Amino acid sequence: MIPQVVDTVVYIEAGEVDTVYDVTTEVKVPEGLTAEDLARPVIQVADFETGRPAYEIYTFNRQVITVPLDDEAGSDTGVDRIAKQEIEREIRSVARGHVNVELTGQNNAIVYVEESDISYVIGKGGGRISDIEDRLGIDIDVRTHEDNPEAGGTATNGSGAETKPAGEVVQPEITARHVVIRMDGHVGETVEIQADDEYLFTATVSSGGDIQISRGSAIAEELEDAIDRKQRITVVPA
């Protein structure tokens, strides 16, 4: 709906026009993904002068996400971060120990888990990991932590987890239709929502300075469960 309401965005800095963006929409496979069945409506935000795409906005696993396309070389792109988060989320749903994710290509990843979790993650005849691969459009190689050649990694829980910013503690408000997280001063920022330092989902702060999650969705139910368990809800930069 955004391009039908706003087709041009003007970014002003220090009282001067800094950048002008064109906003369009098309059905395509999002940048960085390759599986054709992942095609969906994608809002493209492109530099008016050069025509170079700067951002893509689309729905991924029931989340509306904004992915920057001009990340600096050598750092994880927005797509990489989203891919890692979604892989971690899927694997954590079946693994009991901590999980490390390494992206080896646009549609390939290695997942390191505890040896005792290998059978749970792969599933009978490889059925469970195949289902996860189909949902994400990414080929996943499951290995144990002992096979990880790197001393570090991005652990999602347990010992050896990567140290991340503590984040801003928030108190979500539950209304009749939404779970609302107030984020004044962070308009337009893409952030991670965590419960007791464990990743829940990624979202972009609206122009109204909040994040609204429709009640009844899987994300809202997970967040409400965390609130009921009195877990600490924090917001950290994505």
Score class of each variant (00 low, 15 high):
residue 149 P to W: 11
residue 161 A to E: 08
residue 58 Y to L: 12
residue 100 N to E: 13
residue 19 T to W: 01
residue 155 A to N: 10
residue 122 I to Q: 04
residue 127 G to F: 07
residue 139 D to M: 11
residue 79 V to F: 08
residue 131 D to A: 14
residue 75 S to R: 12
residue 8 T to A: 00
residue 156 T to E: 01
residue 202 T to H: 03
residue 133 E to Q: 15
residue 19 T to C: 00
residue 11 Y to C: 02
residue 149 P to S: 06
residue 206 S to N: 13
residue 54 A to W: 02
residue 93 S to W: 06
residue 151 A to P: 11
residue 68 P to K: 02
residue 119 S to E: 05
residue 220 A to L: 03
residue 134 D to G: 09
residue 47 D to W: 01
residue 119 S to G: 08
residue 161 A to Q: 09
residue 87 I to D: 10
residue 120 Y to M: 15
residue 191 V to I: 06
residue 32 G to N: 03
residue 48 F to K: 13
residue 41 P to N: 08
residue 106 Q to G: 11
residue 230 K to M: 12
residue 153 G to E: 01
residue 22 D to P: 00
residue 217 S to M: 05
residue 144 T to K: 11
residue 237 P to A: 10
residue 174 I to P: 02
residue 70 D to W: 00
residue 170 V to G: 05
residue 100 N to A: 10
residue 195 A to R: 06
residue 80 D to S: 05
residue 186 H to G: 00
residue 235 V to D: 01
residue 1 M to H: 04
residue 121 V to S: 06
residue 48 F to P: 01
residue 183 M to H: 02
residue 43 I to G: 05
residue 211 I to C: 05
residue 179 V to L: 03
residue 101 V to L: 07
residue 8 T to V: 00
residue 101 V to P: 02
residue 114 E to D: 13
residue 178 H to I: 02
residue 104 T to L: 14
residue 74 G to W: 04
residue 182 R to D: 12
residue 96 R to Y: 06
residue 8 T to W: 00
residue 114 E to N: 13
residue 89 R to M: 12
residue 38 L to N: 10
residue 203 A to S: 11
residue 41 P to S: 04
residue 107 N to P: 09
residue 131 D to E: 15
residue 165 P to M: 08
residue 100 N to F: 15
residue 145 H to K: 13
residue 128 R to I: 05
residue 170 V to S: 03
residue 221 E to Q: 08
residue 41 P to W: 03
residue 205 V to N: 02
residue 135 R to D: 15
residue 128 R to S: 06
residue 75 S to W: 13
residue 1 M to I: 01
residue 6 V to E: 07
residue 145 H to A: 05
residue 189 E to K: 13
residue 38 L to H: 12
residue 214 S to C: 00
residue 234 T to Q: 03
residue 62 R to L: 04
residue 198 E to P: 00
residue 177 R to W: 04
residue 6 V to I: 15
residue 183 M to P: 01
residue 47 D to L: 01
residue 110 I to D: 15
residue 47 D to N: 15
residue 144 T to Q: 12
residue 231 Q to H: 11
residue 4 Q to G: 14
residue 232 R to T: 13
residue 222 E to Q: 14
residue 152 G to A: 13
residue 130 S to R: 14
residue 105 G to D: 14
residue 152 G to H: 11
residue 46 A to S: 15
residue 174 I to E: 14
residue 139 D to N: 14
residue 142 V to L: 11
residue 132 I to D: 02
residue 41 P to A: 05
residue 69 L to A: 03
residue 101 V to W: 01
residue 136 L to W: 04
residue 35 A to L: 14
residue 234 T to M: 00
residue 180 V to T: 08
residue 58 Y to I: 07
residue 104 T to Y: 10
residue 229 R to E: 15
residue 31 E to D: 14
residue 215 R to F: 07
residue 40 R to H: 02
residue 151 A to M: 15
residue 177 R to D: 14
residue 180 V to M: 04
residue 52 R to G: 01
residue 135 R to V: 13
residue 174 I to V: 15
residue 97 G to D: 12
residue 119 S to R: 11
residue 118 I to Y: 07
residue 178 H to L: 06
residue 191 V to P: 01
residue 112 Y to N: 09
residue 111 V to R: 11
residue 237 P to H: 12
residue 125 G to C: 07
residue 45 V to P: 01
residue 232 R to P: 06
